[in-house]
Design a protein around this nucleic acid. Structure first.
Lengths: 154, 154
DNA sequence: TATATTTGAGACAAGATAGTCTTAAATATG
DNA sequence: CATATTTAAGACTATCTTGTCTCAAATATA
């Protein structure tokens, strides 16, 4: 598996926020409801993103979470780094510690190239990119496709 | 993590076999010893590769395992498929079932391209490729670098 | 101020992966 | 044939990931 489930949920949650107007806080309960993710689990994941400085939160009624930066300034790699860490983009494919150009494993060259492709993709894709593409094509971000991209500015 | 630990061990075990003369069976005990992998665990993994038809085995003294095909006919993707399955190369990056060109998620396009890069790398790299590169550069396939590429034709 | 709402923190349970151990079956060799 | 060696099969434990639940802290609002 490329990304952990926590990381995938974090991405979908962040994408949800990026697709909404960012002027108001949105409760995690509503997000978990719309994305069909366990509320408690999503809460824990959104807390990680808040701790990492990607979101800001407010407690109490009318509270919730929202993006700290504009969505076009948030690359996917930041979410991956916050939840899964950078291991995927730094570690050896054969699991050998300290593998690199100086002390490579036999697979290092090929994997380093492939790994860079993944890294560039994650660095160059922003939440706004995905939100725009999703809105234009009315693409789903839930398993059953019930999510709709209408502005959630309640 | 891209590949499971079982898969990584399987790759290293298969690479070990490809770097040896394939005329004789080699005991998993020796392999696990040279590669510094738990013998019991490696046995289980090599059994999976045998069941998948990548290795053949023989019990008893002078028994062990060896590649069923020549190393240049075994692409890495076959080992990945046998141990981790093809999920990495078929599944949606956002975890949505049935994601594809017909019913994509917002990340589908970027991920499909990246996923193809991984697939091509695994399909085009053979055990012999890695063994040759390892022998030429005397590269390590153990954490501490104690593995040596001298023919193991005992 | 009292109440309802919402995040924060962390204990806890369930499930998957990683790793160990025991026993059985096959087989080479003396 | 007896024995030692080696894979095969599967039970078992440990650790990590995933998911649930409870309670505390903050806060908007009546």
């Amino acid at each position: 598996m490329l990304l952990s489930k926590s990381c995938i949920y974090g991405m979908r949650g962040a994408l949800y926020l990026a697709s909404s107007s960012n002027s108001k806080y949105i409760s995690i309960k509503q997000i978990s409801n719309d994305l069909d993710i366990s509320p408690h689990f999503l809460t824990k994941i959104m807390q990680e993103l808040t701790k990492a400085g990607l979101l800001e939160s407010q407690k109490g009624p009318k509270g919730g979470v929202r993006l700290k930066k504009d969505g076009n300034e948030v690359a996917l790699v930041e979410i991956v780094a916050a939840i899964d860490g950078m291991d995927l983009l730094t570690e050896c494919a054969l699991g050998l510690p300290g593998c690199g150009t100086a002390k490579p494993c036999p697979l290092h060259e090929q994997w380093a190239d492939t790994r860079d492709e993944i890294r560039v993709m994650l660095e160059e894709t922003t939440l706004t990119d995905l939100a725009r593409k999703g809105k234009e094509g009315n693409l789903r971000i839930t398993a059953d496709g019930t999510f709709d991209w209408l502005p959630k500015d309640n």
